[in-house]
Design a protein around this nucleic acid. Structure first.
Lengths: 363, 363
DNA sequence: CTGAAAGCGCTAACAG
DNA sequence: CTGTTAGCGCTTTCAG
């Protein structure tokens, strides 16, 4: 392996000069810089990651914790993960992939060993067991998702409450008075996953404001489950003229079942989804939907992290520094606070005016 | 940060003893071992990853390269990635997530810098540009997937050719004489992705052997695309009584369209899929299918890698380093060779005897 | 069975 | 603008 010292020798300079050429942390004459760069090139030099991490206490690695269970939102998860990796690279960071399996211990491990200098958490739950680790002088971190108590934490997420409200507004504006919500699998709610509950709150609150009826039903994925839920919905509320779906695996079954039971979309029934764009656009009826901006979420998470990280050397936080910081996690955390991306509703072919006979257009 | 020296002091032993307690590379008396372990516990000691990597030339990190484009097989990809991460942890390794974006350069980077000591490649193409890097004294590596020329490389994959053959056998056994294949998006074939072509070959070969007609059509995801393909299929070959689908996003649209055009599954038309189990099981008609064993693939890949890696001494030569020191890939690669997992066909509700009037039961 | 000590390759004060 | 020099924390000879 070719080392920095060899490069220095080859270029006729000292080791530190090579180091500084690489880091740009002090002025270097053009001539020297060129010489060093040439030597690096010729020798095919690559700095040793471990040595760097040891000497600088910076590993340039961000740990990304993805959920172990892949029972939901799988495409979104991968898309976020890839976006995180891509954005991280753009800032000179690499990404370490952690599964939820080890739980909080994994965070302690990668962080305590200096393997990763920061973490991004996906699939955050309302009362997430990993959060205490982050709060207690933990490593710089950003959550993709919103826990019950985000105080002292940095979070990025879609504003699911607003997304829910937006769906209801759209449907109410079209005259729908009875709306049914096909939600995530019961397990998702049981785990108290923030986004599902927030969406529901947004839906309910706006429905109440607008005087529309709202019926919510969790739903496992797959055709059979959707069939069951759908039957019960129409049984309980025959006047339902619109659906909001937040469950990727329920989208096609729902459309198929509506079709089969003789309900045309959007003439008889409107459908609005909260899902990734491709799912909505490629559905058998292109769906009016609120997109889940996976790429954007990943990118933002990394950016929050990196802006904090780069303001590093032994200095107090650049802005709004927390209380006394002295623990091992003295690294500059990103500014705490919640960043909610505004939802965007795209109108496609699945939503239309409420049928006159059913819900009754509001006068 | 608490260091090994502090642990040593606390336990009243030397630094090397602590190190050896940790590595188990030399006999330690029970008493000493217990004392050291206690100190480690009490002080909450965690070895510094960078220092370790530097001193031992082993980072205990495996790089996993996932495809950048997430246009296909997304759930499978994530499942494999998670399986890799989980299996790696079980062997004491962590996983670095690389996207295809940087291409071969990423491999050189993480490998040349000692960041990762081995790599796993997903979504391998027939003539993959990353392979030269691996062949030329590259790092220990395993491919999930099969390139055109796997010589000198270690690969794990489902035996897609056998999977294809299996599908045809099953259908032919049920009396179907005209089979249509709904394949991956044209882009997948254009990129010469191995698995798609191998499946096709398996399908064609066995169909020829059994004297069945086979019509193959690549297909973009989504309802509209499938509708177009389907129409043309029945136009060209009205006698088609069975479908093989290898495209997750085409499964539901296909079923919906068959239904809508009055073809009952499996009474009029049989459908067999090559896809992950959940997709097949949750379809609107539970599908007879050949599973893609994502977990197994991830696990095997890691195991191949690790068995090679552990048979590797700490480092190469004595100090005073000789100049002739192989490239970065001086490590022990896993035994080259291709490991193909045997496909398993699970019969569900979507396949049945060919209708008498259509394809004509073989006498 | 245990200690002492020499680095691994790099960064970041200190000196010019 | 550049060089010298301590380490960063750990592994691994070499001695005992």
């Amino acid at each position: 392996m070719v080392t920095l010292v060899e490069v220095a020798r080859h270029a006729g300079v000292s080791a530190s000069t090579v180091s500084y050429v690489l880091s740009g942390k002090r002025p270097i004459s053009d001539l020297t810089r060129r010489r060093v760069r040439d030597s690096i090139e010729q020798l095919g030099y690559q700095p040793h990651a471990g040595a760097r991490a040891l000497a600088s206490s910076r590993s340039r690695i961000i740990a990304l914790m993805v959920p172990l269970r892949t029972d939901m939102y799988v495409p979104v998860m991968l898309e976020i993960a890839v976006a995180v990796a891509t954005a991280a690279r753009a800032h000179g960071y690499d990404v370490l992939l952690l599964t939820g399996e080890e739980g909080p211990a994994a965070l302690r491990r990668v962080t305590g060993s200096g393997l990763a200098e920061a973490v991004i958490l996906m699939d955050v739950q309302l009362d997430d067991e990993r959060l205490p680790v982050l709060r207690a002088a933990g490593p710089p971190s950003v959550l993709v998702g919103l826990p019950g108590d985000p105080s002292g934490l940095s979070c990025v997420d879609l504003d699911f409450a607003a997304a829910g409200a937006l769906c209801v507004e759209h449907l109410a504006g079209l005259g729908h008075r009875e709306i049914a919500v096909i939600g995530e699998a019961p397990g998702v709610y049981a785990r108290h996953t923030g986004f599902a509950e927030r969406t529901l709150r947004g839906l309910r609150d706006r429905a109440a404001e607008l005087g529309a009826g709202l019926l919510h039903r969790p739903c496992e994925g797959g055709h059979a489950a959707v069939a069951g839920v759908l039957a019960r919905v129409f049984d309980e509320r025959p006047g339902v003229s619109a659906f909001v779906v937040q469950n990727e695996t329920a989208v096609e079954p729902l459309l198929a079942l509506l079709r089969r039971t003789g309900r045309a979309v959007p003439e008889d029934v409107s459908v609005v989804a909260v899902c990734p764009e491709p799912v909505a656009a490629q559905a058998s009826v292109p769906l009016t939907s609120v997109a889940i901006p996976a790429q954007e979420l990943g990118r933002r998470a990394v950016e929050r992290l990196v802006t904090g990280l780069s303001a590093r050397p032994g200095d107090i936080g650049p802005r709004g520094g927390g209380p006394a910081d002295g623990g091992p996690g003295a690294g500059a955390s990103p500014a705490p606070g919640v960043e909610l991306l505004a939802p965007v509703l795209t109108i496609r072919d699945s939503s239309g005016p409420a049928p006159a006979g059913r819900g009754g257009v509001r006068s």
